[in-house]
């Protein structure tokens, strides 16, 4: 890890307009949950805000935005060479970038899910969702960082993964759960609160999350090791 890269990545994330989109998402989630809770007579009415919106949509969107903000633009326009033309291991660069994206995902995304869950009813179910969001947020941020290092269309590919693969395919084909970051998170959350589903099994969920996280960050570092500076398109 490298303190300077860490600082620069944090500045890249905080110093731009897109940061406001990043925080607006969970704020809107929490606001709407409060609204529903206030308007509805059913005490459980607000839970879908967490299970259908906060966890499967807001969290991965925050992770995509965070991961692509710390790496995407620099890879896109080639200015990352200023960071890479240094006697700093490229894996250290990747890890530092990931730590920033990861911290942003957890603080903005997972915390947003937790607050929404607390508003929706709290209790052990909220704790379950927090654990699920921490696990899935960690894995998402690593996967999307790897995508950002690999393709300029990282955001679109990431969205396809979340919306089409995890969303659509996950709705029709239950087997997709075995290859779904969100479902792994829910499985781990299930260990804390049985209110959450158990789509796969715990060892698989933990192992797969770990493999994707470590593998994703390592792959991002490996791509940076082979970063090629070419002319304009």
């Amino acid at each position: 890890m490298n303190g300077t890269i860490l600082k620069l990545a944090a500045q890249a994330l905080l110093g731009r307009r897109r940061f406001w989109l990043l925080v607006a998402l969970p704020l809107a989630l929490i606001g709407l949950t409060v609204l529903i809770r206030a308007l509805s007579s059913d005490p459980d009415a607000a839970w879908p805000m967490v299970s259908f919106l906060g966890f499967p949509l807001v969290l991965p969107l925050v992770a995509i935005l965070a991961a692509s903000s710390v790496l995407g633009p620099e890879v896109d326009d080639g200015s990352i060479v200023y960071l890479l033309a240094k006697p700093v291991s490229r894996h250290a660069v990747a890890i530092s970038k990931w730590v920033v994206a990861w911290a942003a995902t957890l603080v903005v995304g997972s915390l947003g899910v937790l607050v929404a869950a607390l508003v929706a009813g709290g209790g052990s179910e909220a704790a379950g969702w927090l654990v699920a969001a921490l696990v899935a947020g960690t894995t998402y941020s690593a996967l999307f960082l790897a995508l950002s290092a690999f393709t300029r269309h990282a955001v679109v590919v990431g969205l396809i993964f979340v919306l089409i693969w995890e969303g659509l395919a996950g709705g029709f084909l239950s087997g997709v759960a075995w290859l779904s970051i969100g479902q792994w998170g829910i499985q781990v959350g299930h260990a804390v609160s049985s209110e959450l589903d158990a789509p796969v099994n715990l060892p698989w969920a933990l192992l797969a999350s770990l493999v994707v996280t470590v593998g994703g960050v390592w792959f991002a570092g490996d791509r940076l090791r082979s970063f090629a500076l070419t002319g304009d398109e």
């Binding site: 307009r17 897109r18 989109l21 998402l25 809107a28 709407l32 529903i36 509805s40 007579s41 059913d42 009415a45 879908p48 805000m49 259908f52 919106l53 949509l57 807001v58 969107l61 995509i64 935005l65 692509s68 995407g72 990282a154 955001v155 679109v156 969205l159 919306l163």
Partner: peptide, 28 residues
Amino acid sequence: GFAVVASIVVLIVVAGVVRIIQEICSYE
């Protein structure tokens, strides 16, 4: 990338919220 995510938020996330609210309303 920013534009794509912003569009998705406006179209998918908002549609999700509306859908949840409508489910609750039809229930209530």
